[in-house]
Amino acid sequence: MTAIVWVKPEGAELAEVELGQDRLRATGTAIGGDPLPYQLEYDLTTGERWITERLFVKTYGPGWSRSLELINNPAGRWTINAEAEGQVDLPPPGGDPAAVTGALDCDLGLSPLTNTMPVLRGGFLQRGEGEHLMAWVSVPALVVIPSRQTYRHARPGVVSYASERFTEDIVFGADGLVENYPSIGRRIRP
C-alpha cells in the first residue's frame, strides 16, 4: 500500500493505493473549493487489466451530502446508484448507465488517480496511443457523463491526454501513478 498526496490548484487529495500487476485498489479523501467548499471520499476497485469494477464516492459540505456508486460488469454495462440529501446548488447526482455502456473505466473528476488505469492497460508509458470511453464523474456534483479520451505516449514517463475540451501532458512516476498533472494535481513526496 502506497500513501500519496496530490496538491491541487484548489485543494488536496490523500490516497492509499495498492497497485498490483494488473489490478488497483484505492481509498482517498479530497477537499476542494470550486464551485463550493466540499469534502470527498472514495473507494475504487478494479479487476484484471485495471478495468473498473466499482467506484463509491461521497461528497458533502455544510447542510448537504451526496453519494454515488458505479458498478461495471464484465460486459461494460454499468449500474449507477445515487443519493442526495440537503439543499445545494448542484445538478442531481447520477446519470444514464446506457450512455457509458462499453466504458472500461471510471474517471473521477479532479483526481489524478483514475488516469492510471487506461495508461497502464494500454502501455502508453512506453509507446502507443488509444481512445477510451470513460464514465466521467463530475466533482462535487457526482454526475456521470460519457467522456471520450485519448492517451498518447509523448516520451518516457509522459502521456499526452486529450478530451473534447481539455488537453494536458501528464507525468507518471516509475510506479505508474501520476506525479504531475499540471492543472489537476502535483504529487508531494516526503
Rank of each mutant, 00 (worst) to 15 (best):
G123A: 00
L44K: 03
K58T: 14
L110W: 03
R127L: 09
G109S: 03
P35Y: 10
A82T: 12
G86S: 07
S160A: 15
G32L: 00
G47V: 14
I184Q: 07
E83I: 03
V178P: 00
W78K: 03
A75P: 00
T150G: 12
D96H: 04
I184G: 07
S65C: 11
P92S: 14
Y181C: 01
G130S: 08
G28T: 04
P91H: 11
G95S: 10
A135V: 00
Q149V: 13
Q126K: 10
P92E: 15
M134I: 04
L19K: 09
T101K: 08
E179K: 05
N180A: 06
L108Y: 00
C106S: 15
G128V: 02
T29W: 00
K8H: 12
R66N: 05
R187H: 10
S160M: 11
T79V: 12
I145H: 00
G185F: 06
T101R: 08
P35C: 13
H132N: 13
V119C: 07
F124I: 11
P190Q: 06
V178M: 03
A98R: 13
R186V: 10
D34P: 01
R186W: 01
P146V: 05
V159A: 12
D107M: 06
V100I: 13
I31Y: 06
R25Y: 05
S138Q: 13
T59I: 10
G63E: 14
V137N: 01
Q21F: 06
L177M: 07
E131N: 13
E48D: 10
V143W: 02
E179G: 05
G176P: 02
Y60V: 08
P35W: 09
L36F: 01
A26H: 01
Y38I: 04
T2R: 15
L40T: 00
L177T: 07
P91Q: 12
M1A: 15
E41T: 12
S183F: 10
V171T: 15
L133C: 07
T79A: 15
L55H: 02
E85R: 14
P140N: 12
R77M: 04
V17G: 02
Q149G: 12
D107Q: 07
L133A: 13
E83P: 03
D107I: 05
L120I: 06
H153S: 11
L40N: 05
N115M: 06
G76S: 11
E18S: 03
M117I: 12
R23S: 10
I4E: 04
E13A: 01
